[in-house]
Simulated assay, not measured.
Amino acid sequence: MFEFLRSYIVCLALLSGIIGLISLHKLPGNKAKFLVLLIWFSVLTEIVGYFFTQWTGLLNYYVYNFYMFVSFSAYILLLRSLLQKQTNRISAVLFLILFLISLFLNILYFRKDINHSFTYSFAVGVIVVMMLSCLYLVEIFNSNKILNFKKSVFFWYILGILVFHVPVLPFMLAIKWFLIKQDESIFSLVLFILNFLAHSCYIIGFVWSEKKYNY
């Protein structure tokens, strides 16, 4: 019943991507502009993923596994660039290596046919990003940035990442372990709601942020 909502996810990404382009004047450095690039990469992924089966006759796990690899690697590198403490930055590098190892092991596990959902690599990626995000927030709350953290596009982008990935992880694992039955209608509804919340955070960040806090 809610399968049609999957197509509207592209519209959400397009909306936040367009607002990101309009807000480029408030995104002074490459690091801030990189956020807009990531959103447009998600737009491209959603479009290709939507038509992939129709074009190739194959399941679209190839598309989303590649997106997972690129996006989580980008999130970890982004968080590393935002962290100030050297120990936290080193932790980010180690977590990136851990994520890449999990991805390599997933590929080995499905070496005969890798067109499967890399759920466990996704779980590792979410946990790693969640831990690094906590370190980032702790650094903010222990510095003078706490006075203006809501005016930073990075804060809202990280919040959007967490709002989407933290709830979707237990849902996906429950499907993986057959704790709940996979229903495409419910799956589409959950993905739409979480994407709506995430892109709302991105849009708030672009609109509400101020240039001097986006370096």
Rank of each mutant, 00 (worst) to 15 (best):
M68Y: 15
F141Y: 12
I203R: 11
F149H: 08
I204M: 11
G17F: 06
G20S: 04
L59Y: 14
N148G: 12
K211V: 13
L159T: 08
L37K: 14
I140W: 01
Q86D: 09
S42I: 07
Y109K: 11
K212R: 10
F52G: 01
L24K: 09
P170A: 06
A92K: 05
K33I: 00
I9K: 04
L58R: 10
I140E: 00
V190H: 10
G205C: 05
S152R: 00
L137R: 02
L137P: 00
L159Y: 00
E184C: 02
S200N: 09
Y64G: 03
L105S: 07
A198Q: 14
N106R: 03
L103Y: 14
V126M: 03
S81N: 08
S23G: 04
K176N: 08
I22S: 09
L132C: 06
P170K: 04
I193K: 01
Y62P: 00
M1V: 13
L79E: 07
V126F: 08
G205W: 06
I76N: 10
M131G: 13
V138L: 14
F2D: 02
F51P: 01
L12S: 08
V124S: 06
T56Q: 04
N148Y: 14
H25A: 12
S152F: 00
I127Q: 01
L37P: 03
G17E: 01
V168N: 11
V163G: 03
F52H: 02
L173M: 11
K211A: 08
L94R: 15
K145N: 12
T45R: 11
I22C: 12
I186G: 03
V63N: 03
W177R: 03
E210C: 03
I140S: 01
L159M: 12
V124D: 00
I180P: 02
F187S: 13
V163T: 13
F72L: 04
K212D: 06
V126C: 07
L21Y: 06
N144R: 14
N195V: 05
L169D: 06
V207F: 07
V138N: 14
V43W: 03
N60C: 02
L78E: 08
V36L: 00
S16V: 08
L159K: 01
S73H: 00
Y61W: 15
V190K: 04
V10Y: 10
